[in-house]
Design a protein around this nucleic acid. Structure first.
Lengths: 126, 126
DNA sequence: CTGTCTGTTATAGTATATATAGAACAAACG
DNA sequence: CGTTTGTTCTATATATACTATAACAGACAG
């Protein structure tokens, strides 16, 4: 299953759905133009309410990952652009990681090695 | 002021306090052994409830940033260790950034350049 | 000892966020 | 027409966040 949920955790379900789809795209399990289950179907599949899935789809749409048609349903966007909003999100996460690392005295080379391993890990899964 | 709050945002206040202190450490504004205001004093200074500050201090203590004495109050830990728990937190943020970047087709070199700039930005502020 | 300040805990009330539920809408297609 | 799509609306139960008041044990100054 592309969607993996942790009901016991403190991360909202709609956020987990959103992250699962983005991760699936990064891992090559989902590609540009691929169809996604309907809001109602996915809700049944993973055992959550329709509105929870709908909120996740709305997030993915707002972030540019989903292209939603009134009739044909949801699909992965044909062109996944690397715009400023995406760069801002990425940098925000990198900044949080860098602050945590630098405050603990991690060297720059070790930090960059960690960055490289995180990226390479995705290349292998693709 | 070391603590900056965004009351309109969706990030919990205690989380913002926690992040502000960690950022201050990374920027050299706070160093190992430096004292922090008392829970009640900081609460008055930034205009929030005492319990909100207390929760932030508890988080910082759990993450190893604060060494709390019953009487003398809260201080930055004498030795900010780079243990496994910290490495896990850092990698979690890096992984989220890498996924977002890789799913958008960002090249590895561009990603690493972004990582380097995030880290260098902290060095300059120190 | 008395008084004060420290972190900490307990309890309670309020506001917001999350998740669920049922219903309905407009649009697209067979 | 009938079905399915995303979307919107209302309602409810639960969890979290924040505030508020109070109290406790420990440590220090007087």
């Amino acid at each position: 299953m592309i969607i993996t949920l942790d009901l016991a955790g403190d991360v909202p379900i709609y956020q987990q759905i959103r992250d699962s789809v983005v991760a699936a795209i990064a891992q090559g399990k989902l590609r540009e133009g691929d169809p996604l289950p309907s809001v109602r179907q996915l809700a049944v599949d993973i055992g959550v309410n329709m509105h929870t899935v709908n909120k996740a789809y709305a997030l993915l749409k707002a972030d540019g990952y989903l292209s939603i048609d009134r009739r044909s349903g949801a699909r992965i966007s044909e062109r996944l652009l690397l715009d400023d909003a995406v760069r801002a999100r990425i940098f925000e996460n990198l900044n949080a990681a860098a602050i945590e690392a630098y405050s603990r005295g991690m060297t720059e080379s070790e930090f960059l090695t960690l960055c490289e391993s995180a990226f390479d890990q995705l290349k292998e899964e693709a």
